[in-house]
């Protein structure tokens, strides 16, 4: 007996809470991956990152509407098209933003922060004008609904599992992209020594634009996945932006493993404390701990040693 619960009930609650933490972890990882590329590798503060995510979410919403009206036979697999569309839209918008805004500001990181905040306000209002101020949700195809009952008490929702699988896939994709592909090699070369990379014939400006676009595109996919577990509103992106930045900074900018580790610890801490205290206190405690640790260890959990 623990408190008012029997032993089995208690372990089940822990398991369910742990699973909820894992779902939160997946969302955090998806959001942080794009930022880890843009902020961690390029050093650009993109405060509009959340809005790129919401763009992906709205694309998924449009896709689900389109398929349910015009292609009901393919509705069960609309999600895969939606993800591609979400990626493409965010990727293109990201390239556009890099071309029109970011490329002038690489030497002024604080100004980038302000400019992208302005961009996020504009995007928010644009979403509100186009899609309305109310939150929208997508209809999930049948095979994603429901849950698997493991024991009498423990039930695991299928959409949560799907998001986790997706997260694992995308993380692997980013890993191979960054560390095993030619593009990743070029990107890392530009980050480590821009002049030298240019000298050996890498088009550094194009690499910058592609990197920024890819980071935004991954945010778009994150938004697409996000629609499966929550509804989307114009300001939803802003709710997550601080958490996401903290995750990337906490993990140690530039380290992919660090980002994942910090997303895991933050989400697990938050969902575990949530069980004992209120949701807001859980968030306050988690964030305070993270800020406290960052004050003691400003370089984050994992650091790459780069000669600047």
């Amino acid at each position: 007996m623990i408190g008012d619960y029997t032993y089995t009930e208690f372990t089940s609650i822990l398991a369910m809470q742990g699973f909820a933490g894992l779902t939160l972890f997946s969302v955090f990882v998806l959001m942080a991956l794009g930022l880890a590329i843009i902020f961690g590798q390029m050093g650009v503060i993109n405060m509009a990152h959340g809005e790129f995510m919401i763009l992906g979410a709205y694309m998924t919403y449009l896709c689900s509407q389109f398929f349910s009206v015009y292609l009901p036979s393919l509705f069960s697999i609309y999600f895969f098209f939606a993800m591609i569309l979400a990626f493409a839209a965010s990727f293109l918008l990201g390239m556009l933003v890099e071309w029109g805004l970011i490329r002038f500001l690489y030497r002024r990181p604080l100004d980038t922060l302000l400019a992208t905040w302005g961009l996020s306000l504009i995007l928010q209002q644009a979403y509100r004008s186009i899609f309305g101020a109310r939150e929208v949700g997508v209809t999930l195809p049948d095979w994603l609904m429901g849950s698997i009952a493991l024991t009498d008490i423990i039930e695991i929702p299928i959409n949560g599992l799907f998001v986790m699988g997706l997260t694992a896939l995308i993380t692997l994709g980013v890993y191979f992209g960054m560390f095993r592909s030619n593009w990743g090699k070029r990107m890392r070369a530009v980050v480590q020594n821009r002049t030298m990379a240019g000298a050996v014939g890498i088009n550094t400006k194009m690499v910058d634009r592609m990197t920024f676009g890819l980071g935004c595109g991954i945010a778009g996919i994150a938004g697409s996945a996000f629609t499966m577990i929550g509804s989307t509103g114009p300001t939803a992106g802003q709710l997550y932006i601080v958490d996401t930045f903290l995750i990337v900074v906490f993990g140690g900018a530039g380290s992919l493993i660090g980002t994942i580790a910090s997303a895991f610890s933050i989400s697990q801490a938050q969902s575990t404390i949530e069980f004992f205290l209120s949701g807001s206190m859980a968030k306050v405690l988690t964030l305070l701990t993270v800020v406290g640790i960052l004050m003691l260890r400003p370089q984050g959990l994992f650091t790459l040693k780069i000669r600047r």
């Binding site: 980038t112 400019a115 302005g118």
Partner: peptide
């Protein structure tokens, strides 16, 4: 407001 942020930087 968003335009102002961008304009004041650029």
């Amino acid at each position: 407001m968003g335009g102002l942020f961008i304009a004041v930087v650029m």
